[in-house]
Amino acid sequence: MKVLVTGAAGFIGMHLCERLLARGDEVVGFDNLNDYYPVALKEARLARLAGHPGFRCVRGDLADTAAVDSLFAEGGFARVAHLAAQAGVRYSLKNPLAYAQANLLGFVNILEGCRHNGVEHLVYASSSSVYGGNAKMPFAEEDAVDHPVSLYAATKKSNELMAHTYSHLYGLPATGLRFFTVYGPWGRPDMAYWSFTEKILAGQTIDVFNHGQMRRDFTYVDDIVEGVLRVLDKPATADPDYDPLRPTPATARVPHRVFNIGASEPVALLDFIETLERALGRSADKRFLPMQDGDVPATYADTRRLEAWVGFAPKTPLATGIGRFVDWYRAYTGR
């Protein structure tokens, strides 16, 4: 089938495009290649896809309504994997308008494109950050997500509400996927695992926030992509058991669903650093600092709904995934 992947030059987007192409789908990628992190990395990802006859890349901005309308009008897409967004929790504290443009206006443009062009299923990236100040663990899709602690999280919660509205009004099948701390080869330089690796190899001090008392549900990128593919192939349906007297964000009486995708194995930050040190064969010089604004102390995914829906949950061990990232990083940077 013909699939639109937004954010195709991104970390998860590139990996998803490769998997779709490998199974014979035709893929159109859409990306603005912004400079939030080095554009050269995004160009290198696209170069991996460029030689495939089933792939075409369109450069444009999600917030450009005319460009998105044109993309859909010419595309004939059966399904859409919407991964493009202005990423980063802490950057949202510094540049909130970028998030309003990309994550809110951009998402409306995607919804309108799907609505007017017969898209069979929209799968879009949400985030574990929507759980915000929740203290109950593990995070379950049924939990209320009304207390975001960053604008980034608020835009992702907004996306879920917006998609539900289009499912209600126009019958658009849509599924939101709450990603939990994705890592792996071709990853993002703004993520801690990349920054730690860079600094450890350079003999520089790494900043360890919340005095090392953080826990994260690190999820390997191949597991994320497998989940996206399986969900993409199973369009959302209305939940016949949905009870409006006991509403839940997870399902609805319209074709909209939300799933966690995480490893379901939260790792203490200091244990994560130790795993990285072993893979690098070097020790880190650590500087312990307080919690950053917009951050949360722990994430932990309950993935039982995902398993019940598509028969899959992430399973790559952290040591395996980190080893693969380190091997790739050394090859990519020559270090």
Rank of each mutant, 00 (worst) to 15 (best):
T237W: 07
G10Y: 14
S150Y: 01
D271T: 09
G106C: 07
R45G: 08
R330D: 09
G7A: 08
D143C: 06
D243K: 00
I322C: 02
A319D: 15
E18V: 03
D295N: 11
N134Y: 08
G323V: 06
S150M: 07
P138G: 08
S92E: 11
T237Q: 15
G7Q: 11
A236S: 15
T316K: 07
R305T: 03
F107D: 10
L122T: 09
E18C: 12
G24A: 08
S167T: 11
W309T: 09
H121A: 07
R188M: 10
Y332P: 00
R216Y: 12
F196C: 04
R115F: 11
Y329I: 03
G203E: 00
V267T: 15
Y170C: 10
S70T: 12
K315E: 11
R90W: 10
C17L: 06
L41G: 14
R278K: 15
W309M: 10
L229A: 07
H256A: 14
Q292D: 14
F72L: 10
F312C: 05
K234Y: 04
A268T: 00
A308I: 00
L269K: 09
P185I: 08
K199Y: 00
A250V: 05
S158W: 14
V108N: 10
V28S: 13
D293F: 13
T275H: 14
L97Q: 12
N95W: 06
L122Y: 12
D293W: 10
A154Q: 07
T175A: 02
A263W: 08
L229P: 06
A135H: 04
D327F: 03
N159A: 14
